[in-house]
Write a protein that binds this DNA or RNA. Structure first.
Lengths: 146, 146
DNA sequence: GTATATGCAAAGGGTTTGCACGGTT
DNA sequence: AACCGTGCAAACCCTTTGCATATAC
């Protein structure tokens, strides 16, 4: 997956190598799960002049050449991941907002079912799954019983 | 599910009955999948003075008393459903943006797996599943082969 | 009569865009 | 030298909020 250096990934598609692109990529790799705003802050630690619109444009480019991906966690900003990370699904608790990452394999069967039944190739890593985490489920049960 | 009249649902929780609330509820029921903007347009056909902020506040109230629910389909505005509709999952094609509704039962096994493995109670109806629909998958394959 | 709901306008978060300048190739 | 990428500012979409007025109870 990371056999081709990032510079070549960009060059192959006719994109140029710039400090901004390097810094954004490094920030995404190092943040793990970064929103555009967080990535901006991280980049600005090194290069304070970088603008938010550059972050957005750069994230788009890096994603288009397959160096990063993004996931929608909820209403707010998306989070970006390095493509090196193992594919994972995000479980988001509606109650406490905690995000748990679980291996994408957890949805393998579900994806096959959707494929068989509807010809739909699900990309479970792209949208989070919402619900209640273990602790918040327990709290609700306590409430239900008085 | 709809055994208790909508007025009582509101009154039980201390909310008042207003024309706006009636109109919004009727619009949601009749639109099937409506964004706040679409609901506004629909309501304004009858009562042109209603304001968008009232739509938002009303949707929140109607949801809190269990008369409607909402789902996030993608980056844009959420869609609201009548609570009478059978629970369904939304499959959204990344390519052509088509939305397919499938019975919530399609995810029953997946939900159980998440419950068993992580104690997480998934609410698969709340977030759409993205991916590629049948026709767009075929198009990609054609492209892959030249 | 009193508390709640509404309309209006302004502000907020997140994102995109037009344009002139600057940097990579 | 040509073109792509960047910074800046403005605009955009969607949503929330403060406040005065109107209305359901």
């Amino acid at each position: 997956m990371a056999l081709i250096p990032w510079e070549d990934r960009l060059r192959e598609q006719g994109f140029r190598i710039t400090p901004q692109r390097q810094l954004v990529l490094e920030s995404v790799n190092h943040l793990g799960h970064g929103t555009p705003e967080k990535i901006l802050s991280s980049v600005q630690e090194t290069a304070s002049g970088v603008n938010l619109s550059t972050i957005y444009r750069t994230l788009e480019v890096l994603e288009s050449v397959g160096l990063i991906t993004h996931t929608h966690i909820g209403h707010g900003a998306p989070v970006y991941h390095s493509q090196d990370q193992p594919p994972h699904i995000h479980l988001v608790c509606d109650e406490c907002a905690e995000v748990t990452s679980v291996p994408a394999a957890a949805a393998a069967e579900f994806s096959l079912d959707l494929q068989d039944a509807y010809g739909f190739s699900a990309q479970m890593t792209h949208m989070a799954v919402t619900g209640l985490c273990r602790s918040c489920t327990n709290v609700s049960e306590v409430k239900d019983h008085g």
